[in-house]
């Protein structure tokens, strides 16, 4: 897949020939892509196509078999280099620490790195929770929250880091359509407020086309489409069209029966 031009020619994240196998099964087959500073880049594809594996490489949670991931031109090959950049990740499950309250989860980064005084941390936590519409939830435990609330707490926790790059792993999975729209709006709003580069992995077509500046379609570990939403939508490749136009054909099922 040839590399589509970036939006403003300044790649913030650059992936070159990234390959990863698990037990002889190649999950990523030479991924090449660039993400601009401040853009919302969506990676879509069916389940099992390697989207989350790709995302985990970007945040250093997995090491590649070959190929490189660079941030602002620096190859990320050790946790020390990655720690120079503020890269936050919103996990599919929220990944909130179950033994901590909402406020403790959101303030964890600042508290553990001793970046602010406790009173300041409390104020920042309140502010970030307000951004995601969860004022007053400070003392609640993760088990008391719905799926959507957990994701929003996870976003608030990411925002506390004042990240340069935010990675979202399936931000709308398991959520109803109304909450999905809210989460999508949050992602766009946050980009406007913070200017952070956002990389969103999803198989939700509505979300992907709704928020993306540029997007890629991943299938069987390969990028089969890369470009603006309109370019991807008009891709001539069959697998892209199959993914984008898959609908539930009830009539054909009943006729077959």
């Amino acid at each position: 897949m040839s590399q589509a031009p970036t939006k403003n020619g300044r790649p913030c994240v650059e992936v070159k020939d990234l390959r990863k196998s698990f037990g002889g099964c190649e999950v990523l087959k030479g991924i090449n892509m660039e993400v601009d500073s401040g853009e919302i880049f969506v990676i879509m594809g069916p389940s099992g196509s390697g989207k989350s594996v790709l995302l985990r490489h970007l945040v250093g949670l997995l090491a590649s078999d070959s190929g490189t991931v660079s941030i602002e031109g620096n190859v990320i090959d050790s946790p020390e280099i990655l720690s120079k950049y503020r890269v936050a990740m919103v996990f599919q499950s929220g990944a909130l620490l179950g033994s901590l309250s909402v406020a403790e989860n959101v303030g964890l980064y600042l508290r553990e790195h001793r970046l602010k005084k406790p009173a300041e941390i409390d104020a920042i936590v309140k502010e970030k929770l307000a951004i995601v519409g969860l004022e007053g939830a400070e003392d609640r435990m993760p088990t008391e929250l719905s799926g959507g609330m957990k994701k929003r707490v996870s976003i608030a926790r990411a925002l506390v880091m004042e990240p340069q790059i935010i990675l979202y792993d399936e931000p709308t999975s398991e959520l109803d359509p109304l909450i999905s729209v809210t989460i999508g709006e949050e992602i766009v709003k946050l980009r406007e407020q913070t200017g952070a580069t956002s990389i969103v992995v999803t198989h939700d077509r509505d979300l992907g086309f709704g928020i993306a500046d540029r997007m890629a379609i991943l299938r069987h570990g390969e990028l089969v489409a890369l470009g603006t939403p309109d370019e991807v939508r008009s891709s001539p490749r069959e697998e892209v069209q199959t993914f984008l136009n898959a609908t539930f054909q009830r009539q054909s099922i009943t006729e077959t029966q």
């Binding site: 946790p79 990944a95 179950g98």
Partner: peptide, 17 residues
């Protein structure tokens, strides 16, 4: 172990903890 399975440890790592 439960923190590892439910990605809480990954979350710590992404926060440089």
């Amino acid at each position: 172990g439960s923190m590892a399975v439910y990605q809480e440890i990954d979350a710590l790592r992404t926060m440089n903890i």
